[in-house]
């Protein structure tokens, strides 16, 4: 049985797809058979970030509607060979994701994979509900600002009430907070909420803090999951997050301002 992880947030543009790409790649790099599903039917992005958009023939909705088999729709990643992508349909509506259809696909994937990562669309409508319904764990992607925190709180409430685990009365979905676009300088200037603020408000365990970085943007544009940028702070932060997701203890990094070098201290006073 696979472990099903939903990457969700409520709010759009906070880094769900970037996170889905990096977490699934990170799990696969460690040898776990992993599949990442794009639930954002109609606005698909994951294939771009995973650089496989030119290889999409069949998609998730085709499989649900019986127009293609899972094998025809799954795309094997070119960089990590234990990673597969199930792309979203660009031309359908989100209502094409029926509960029974999604369950059938997830059950089938469950037999072949160790981890199923579900990349949720923004919002709290049907697509997002389908993405989180079957989840065992949830990575709640949050930016350090008030409206993102509020939306994350909303999605946490939905995880507790509308997921399969909630409906069946099983153990609740395991929740993780992933703080993205974190900029310690702006926190110090009072322009952003701090890690402590967000943790205090949401009251769920912190999986990781991904620093705001040009590298994330560049990697996305090149179709490279940022976790593969192993020298970058953002890449390392995702690597840490994956390790923690698998139960390793790692100290949190990238949460305070970087120390300035000797010269910048000399010339900028400090």
């Amino acid at each position: 049985m696979a472990r099903i992880i939903v990457v969700t947030s409520g709010k759009g543009g906070v880094g769900k797809t970037t996170t889905s790409a990096s977490i699934s790649t990170g799990l696969a790099k460690r040898g776990h058979k992993t599949v990442v599903i794009d639930f954002d039917v109609g606005l698909r992005n994951l294939d771009l970030i995973m650089n496989c958009e030119r290889r999409v023939v069949y998609d998730f909705v085709n499989v649900i509607q019986g127009e293609a088999t899972l094998n025809q729709a799954l795309i094997r990643d070119k960089r990590v060979d234990t990673l597969y992508i199930l792309p979203a349909s660009q031309t359908r509506e989100k209502e094409a994701l029926t509960k029974e259809g999604v369950e059938k696909v997830i059950n089938e994937l469950s037999e072949r994979f160790d981890y199923i990562v579900c990349d949720s669309p923004a919002g709290i409508e049907h697509g997002a509900l389908m993405a989180l319904y079957y989840a065992d764990e949830a990575v709640v992607v949050t930016n350090p600002e008030v409206s993102s925190v509020r939306d994350s709180d909303r999605i946490l409430g939905i995880l507790q009430s509308k997921s399969r685990r909630a409906e069946m009365g099983q153990d609740p979905v395991k929740e993780h907070l992933l703080l993205t676009r974190y900029n310690p300088d702006r926190v110090n200037r009072g322009e952003m909420l701090s890690v402590a603020d967000v943790e205090e408000i949401l009251a769920i365990p912190l999986l990781g803090v991904i620093p705001e970085s040009q590298i994330v943007l560049n990697a996305s544009n090149q179709g490279l999951p940022v976790i593969l940028e192993e020298d970058s702070d953002a890449g390392q932060a995702y690597e840490d997050a994956v390790a923690r997701l698998l139960g390793e203890e790692r100290e949190h990094r990238f949460m305070s301002s970087q120390k300035k070098g000797f010269f910048s201290r000399m010339f900028k006073g400090g």
């Binding site: 709180d153 909303r154 507790q160």
Partner: peptide
């Protein structure tokens, strides 16, 4: 459990005791 944004908890007869935050919304 925390009472999250969008959730409503109702005690129709007696007291309500929440041993966690009641969030905005």
């Amino acid at each position: 459990q925390p009472v999250r944004s969008g959730q409503q908890v109702y005690a129709p007869a007696g007291d309500l005791i929440v041993l966690a935050p009641v969030q905005a919304g």
